[in-house]
Amino acid sequence: MRQTRSFRSLVDMPFFLPTVTFALVVILWQLAADIFAIPSFILPSPTRILGGFEQIDLARWTDHVWATLRIALIGYLLSIAISLPIAIMLVRSKLLSRAFYPILVVIQSMPVVAIAPIMIVVLGSEDAPRIVITCLITFFPLVVSTATGLMATPEELIELSKSLKAPAWREITQIRLPYAVPYIFSALKISITLAVIGAVVAEFVAAEKGIGYFIQFSTSFFKLPEAWAGLVILVIMSLLLFQAVAVIQRVLFPWSLPKEGR
């Protein structure tokens, strides 16, 4: 009886089941690769991928990680700086909303992978095109979510603001924007992982550094374990960035989380 209860509490721990599942997948993967002798350029086993990490020294890994991380973060922050004012503008003015919203949708409909080579030609092979590409992929969810959040303010509070004859900008800063915080953060979480994708796509097209560049370089020499190692790093990077955004929300805006998430 006691044993089953302690097993239950173990199962109820938030990280227990995913960890077990993940470990099982890795073990099966390893066994399959060993038993069927799958060549490493098709599917390297987990131990081979670990070996791939060792092929490259730490200084070069940090170099690549930093190159990708830097572009992803700059593009992400720039995207936030652009999309919040755009969202406010769309909410403030029906006219601007009607004029610009279709254009935003058109921009969003352009596959980033297809724009990337064009951007590189137009903007050169430095940081600029990579940052622009990262912005392009991240700003749409931010604009749409923020605008939705700004509109989700209870009508009574807007009436209260009007009945106080407060300046319109204060209605935005003191009522609408804080009300949009939960919406903004759900978009920030989506966009941070998109930012990593944007940075990697840009590196695929033209770069001499970065994890994206490294993966492409490794595959062209059939060094699949190294490429897989790069992929693992990208996944970890995305997960950590996602968690960082979640932590920022929990620390700065605890009221914006659903009750059980506090």
Binding site: P154, L157, I175, P178, V181, W255
Partner: peptide, 12 residues
């Protein structure tokens, strides 16, 4: 001054 049907306080 107005009191609304729902308190509509600022949650933050």
């Amino acid at each position: 001054g107005i009191v609304f049907q729902n308190p509509t306080l600022l949650p933050w």
